[in-house]
Design a protein around this nucleic acid. Structure first.
Lengths: 191, 191
DNA sequence: CATCCCATGTAATCTGTTACATGATTGA
DNA sequence: TCAATCATGTAACAGATTACATGGGATG
């Protein structure tokens, strides 16, 4: 059985929340979500919008009023129905990912101790930066989305990212302690 | 600039740790790693091994001794050098992922309260199961890999997975509390 | 005698990324 | 007037997934 393309649900979901959005609007939203749980780029969004239009999941309105031409999309009842059917089904899998940091770390025996330490310090910095971005983002969402139906959902997703970042910080710090303690077998000769 | 295919480093990394492995052996290892940070399936491994062979990053030995023919690969100095060059470079990005649970959760306003609750309970169960698998896995690694250079690396990666699982459990539980408290705006009419 | 594991692979399809092309408006 | 942002898109390529094909050996 062909796997369903979940990207279309991400797009339909955006359109379910707000009517008459452009492909560009959707891309902007996706970009914000991408930090947390979903990424989509415009080489996917525009063709998928066309596909959804052909399947009558969305409808199109051209806006020539404003200064420039915009293509505005709205979800149809058929599209909403399609979204809902998928939404109520239990998700199939936990998120899988390819993590370059962990791949390199798993091969740490081939690195010098200071190279290994650099990688983890580098990761720690990035995770801390991301955590702060998420903390700010959550504050912003609480204000901007106040009163909106999805406010608590979105801020909860930020909360999720923050909790995970904290766990990662904890891990990095414990690893750094072990590295400095010389616990890891590294490669100080070859190369 | 074309993005480098990191899958080849995952394969070279496996071969860097142990000589004369078959494609099947590599696949088995990848399968274990996939729970944590890297997934690769055999439709990628076999063609990549051939590519690596052509590029003289690995060498091949055919084993006809045993009951069935095996193709055994070993990393070459050139391959090792290629691996090392990549390994010392700072990783470029934090892991991105598409998380179906979070996507559905972000659209929770379209679900009934009990459907929303089901999704999170479902996630909580899976995360707890995964956490226990990782705890067992870490124990096993500590024994099986004892004395091996990568023992602490691999067990640390399990530790990473465990810490993240714990953070997820914490999140699910706090969300469930809020759902039961009726904090989330859900859709009890439509559909 | 069936099923699972070992072992190697391919074809077709789907998904994702990069780079590019185009051009208007806004703000410093 | 220059850069950033708004806005829509495509081509080419890279990567991943599914399903299939093949067949020996071991276990029950």
């Amino acid at each position: 059985m062909a796997k369903e393309n979940k990207s279309i649900y991400a797009i339909l979901g955006c359109l379910g929340k707000r009517e008459w959005m452009t492909g560009y609007d959707i891309k902007q939203i996706m970009q914000k979500m991408s930090a947390m749980y979903w990424a989509e780029n415009n080489a996917q969004i525009y063709p998928l919008l066309k596909k959804l239009l052909i399947e009558k999941m969305v409808e199109l309105k051209e806006d020539s009023q404003g200064p420039r031409k915009k293509l505005l999309y709205k979800i149809t009842p058929k599209g909403m129905n399609h979204l809902m059917k998928w939404l109520v089904k239990p998700p199939q899998e936990l998120a899988k990912h390819k993590d370059e940091y962990l791949l390199k770390f798993s091969l740490g025996q081939f690195l010098d101790q200071n190279e290994l330490q650099n990688h983890i310090e580098n990761l720690l910095v990035k995770v801390k930066v991301k955590k702060n971005i998420l903390i700010d983002g959550e504050q912003r969402i609480r204000k901007e989305h106040e009163g909106r139906k999805d406010c608590l959902y979105i801020s909860s997703i930020y909360e999720y990212g923050i909790l995970l970042s904290e766990a990662k910080v904890k891990w990095c710090e414990s690893i750094l302690k072990k590295i400095k303690n010389g616990d890891f077998q590294t490669n100080e000769n070859l190369k």
